[in-house]
């Protein structure tokens, strides 16, 4: 089965600061991620794994090097286009949820669609669908703050899939959860990969969740030190 290359990077560098205080977070990353893959980016704190995810998710621009999405270089795209791509193609799951605590569950899930400018009925219908998938539709009217950690992460996943994205970027998705709840959330993410073909890119230092991914990329000091992908070996 041939798969399209979804994201690829070439000689990706990212530096912060200037002159003496300059810090190189990424020192030349070459990657190819296919559509439908499950990828774990593993590294210690400060290894550059989060920086890599931010670049892949088009939240930030590299100092040098290129990122291609669906074969198109994103370097020269205008911010407006990048905003649009993030809104349409990506879903985000964060360690500390990032929900509007005072708002209802439904409104939190609706947010990406509201930003996209969808009409009220359509976005409500799609948000309810997403909540059904993560099996938390009965909490739609509750305040986000009143939910448990596992429920919050389900809501975040619902928010991540509500726009039918191609990729979900998950940054330590189980980091704030106990192991039983964490396993359920992990299962939910992998089910989405299986059922909907959504590419999963999980940033973690948890070997347990990393081992469930088909592919593990290990990062240390801004460099890829190992990649379980065969393609890499062929190169």
């Amino acid at each position: 089965m041939t798969k399209e290359i979804l994201l690829s990077t070439r000689n990706l560098h990212k530096s912060y600061g200037k002159k003496e205080s300059k810090f190189d977070a990424l020192k030349g990353i070459d990657l190819e991620i296919d559509e439908g893959e499950t990828v774990a980016i593993i590294g210690k704190s400060g290894s550059g794994k989060s920086t890599l995810m931010h670049l892949l998710a088009l939240l930030d621009r590299p100092t040098s090097g290129t990122i291609k999405l669906n074969g198109i270089s994103t370097n020269r795209l205008k911010n407006k286009r990048l905003n649009h791509l993030r809104n349409k193609e990506f879903g985000f799951v964060f360690q500390s949820f990032f929900m509007n605590a005072d708002d209802t569950v439904l409104n939190n899930v609706i947010l990406p669609l509201k930003i996209a400018g969808l009409g009220y009925r359509e976005r409500k219908r799609r948000a309810m669908e997403a909540l059904q998938i993560v099996e938390i539709e009965d909490k739609a009217k509750n305040k986000a703050n009143d939910l448990s950690g596992g429920q919050k992460q389900r809501v975040c996943i619902a928010r991540a899939i509500v726009n039918n994205p191609k990729v979900i970027f998950a940054d330590e998705p189980t980091g704030n959860l106990d192991s039983v709840t964490g396993d359920k959330i992990t299962k939910l993410l992998f089910d989405l990969n299986k059922d909907k073909g959504i590419t999963l890119i999980i940033v973690t230092h948890d070997e347990d969740i990393a081992s469930k991914c088909k592919r593990q990329i290990r990062i240390t000091d801004g460099k890829v030190i190992s990649d379980s992908n065969i393609k890499k070996g062929q190169k």
Binding site: N83, H84, N87, F92, F98, L111, P112, I115
Partner: peptide, 11 residues
């Protein structure tokens, strides 16, 4: 919240 809005594509 602003960060989230922008991450989710708000210009």
């Amino acid at each position: 919240e602003i960060g989230l809005d922008k991450a989710l594509g708000m210009p």
